[in-house]
């Protein structure tokens, strides 16, 4: 139990301060809405370094990657990163331009990013650079390029 307690204490909100100190211009809008949740915005170009930093700090579990569409000009890639030894979930949001959405892949840091990235790609059209086998996962292959979860999607085949 002692080790467990110690581990839980490491995985706490001070990581957000460390994160902002380490990447001062990249991390912004840090918010801690509840004891176990923390939210921050990050610069999409630095997502790889930030995740590597978090992994080294013990955030070894990538919970989820989601896309969010904010027409007309931006999209967000939302990462939920947490740890196997603590309750804190860090939500990191990276805004990407809607006309050419792309962001670095995390597959070489978190193994399980692969399917989440493929899913986000097929539903939103956000390209993950260097993601191995970036192709449709859930949809049929003919639907690649439809991006059905975008807000302006009007049914298959998409007229937009």
């Amino acid at each position: 139990m002692g080790d467990e307690q110690a581990a839980i204490q490491v995985i706490d909100k001070t990581i957000m301060i460390e994160l902002s100190d380490k990447f001062p211009d990249v991390v912004s809008d840090v918010d801690v809405p509840s004891p176990n949740r923390a939210i921050a915005r990050i610069d999409p170009s630095k997502v790889h370094e930030i995740m590597q930093f978090l992994l080294d700090k013990g955030f070894d579990h990538l919970s989820c990657i989601s896309g969010v569409d904010y027409p007309p000009d931006k999209m967000e890639v939302v990462y939920h990163v947490t740890s196997y030894s603590g309750p804190l979930v860090i939500t990191l949001k990276a805004s990407v331009p809607r006309d050419d959405p792309n962001i670095d892949s995390l597959c070489d840091i978190y193994w399980n990013a692969n399917w989440y990235e493929r899913e986000t790609y097929e539903l939103y059209g956000i390209k993950f650079n260097d993601c191995p086998y970036l192709k449709v996962l859930l949809l049929v292959e003919e639907m690649e390029g439809e991006w059905p979860l975008r807000k302006d999607y009007a049914g298959y085949p998409n007229p937009t």
């Binding site: 996962l137 859930l138 059905p148 979860l149």
Partner: peptide, 11 residues
């Protein structure tokens, strides 16, 4: 390979 019963619940 998955997606045979994709229901699009999120949408």
């Amino acid at each position: 390979k998955i997606g045979y019963i994709h229901k699009g619940m999120e949408k």
